Computed example of a mutant assay.
Amino acid sequence: MKQESLTTLQEHWDITYNHALGETGSHFYNALRDEGKILGRRCPACERVLLPPRPFCDRDFVDTTDWVEVGTEGRVEAFTVVFQSFRGLPEAPYCIAYVLLDGADTAVLNYVRGIDWTPGNVPQNIGVGTRVKVAFAEEREGRMTDFWFEKA
């Protein structure tokens, strides 16, 4: 049997999609937009504060109950610096990080701004454990991009 060479097919998708946020997501984004607060949800079984908030605990499979305002500072749990530009995203280089905000038990992903991300500067500018603070957009829209992290 003759072996065929593998081929590729380049395609472009440009899709606008309306996400249904549900009660939990709606409350989270409305509080972010209207009050400049970052809220998590507490699991009544393990008492973890989940951020981003979820309607149920992924560990205990029970409905979450109380809304909890988390802190505006935290520590980097994981990060990556992106050096290749992608359509629809900020011009490279930029950094995204999972940050465990004070008062939360799960980390939230967002951009880290205000730092020189050229390759030689990355090691001294960020690492796992780096303390960061939340900065809010002046005009918020109820989106994750309404806030970002900066070095504390």
Score class of each variant (00 low, 15 high):
Lys2Leu: 11
Gln3Phe: 08
Leu6Arg: 15
Thr8Tyr: 14
Leu9Ala: 11
Gln10Glu: 08
His12Ser: 15
His12Gly: 09
His19Tyr: 14
Leu21Ile: 05
Gly22Val: 10
Gly22Trp: 11
Phe28Trp: 05
Tyr29Gly: 12
Tyr29Met: 15
Tyr29Phe: 15
Asn30Val: 06
Asn30Glu: 14
Asn30Tyr: 12
Ala31Glu: 13
Ala31Arg: 13
Ala31Trp: 04
Asp34Lys: 05
Glu35Asn: 13
Gly36Val: 03
Arg41Phe: 00
Arg41Ser: 07
Arg41Met: 09
Arg42Pro: 00
Arg42Trp: 09
Ala45Asp: 09
Ala45Arg: 14
Cys46Gln: 02
Leu50Ala: 05
Pro53Gln: 04
Arg54Leu: 03
Arg54Cys: 03
Pro55Ile: 04
Cys57His: 08
Phe61Lys: 13
Asp63Thr: 11
Thr64Arg: 03
Thr64Cys: 02
Thr65His: 11
Asp66Met: 06
Asp66Asn: 10
Glu69Ala: 13
Glu73Phe: 01
Gly74Ser: 05
Val76Gln: 14
Val81Cys: 11
Phe83Asn: 13
Gln84Lys: 09
Gln84Asp: 07
Gln84Trp: 04
Ser85Tyr: 06
Gly88Ser: 04
Leu89Ser: 04
Glu91Phe: 04
Tyr94Phe: 10
Cys95His: 10
Cys95Ile: 01
Ala97Asn: 01
Tyr98Ile: 00
Val99Lys: 10
Leu101Pro: 03
Gly103Asp: 00
Gly103Ser: 04
Ala104Met: 09
Thr106Gly: 05
Asn110His: 03
Asn110Met: 09
Asn110Arg: 05
Val112Arg: 04
Val112Leu: 00
Val112Ile: 03
Gly114Leu: 02
Asp116Asn: 11
Trp117Leu: 01
Thr118Tyr: 03
Thr118Lys: 14
Gly120Ser: 12
Asn121Pro: 01
Asn121Val: 00
Val122Ile: 06
Pro123Asp: 01
Asn125Ile: 09
Gly127Glu: 13
Gly129Gln: 01
Thr130Met: 05
Arg131His: 13
Val132Tyr: 07
Lys133Leu: 02
Ala135Gln: 15
Met144Ala: 05
Met144Leu: 12
Trp148Ser: 08
Phe149His: 08
Glu150Thr: 05
Lys151Ile: 00
Lys151Ser: 11
Ala152Leu: 04
Ala152Val: 11
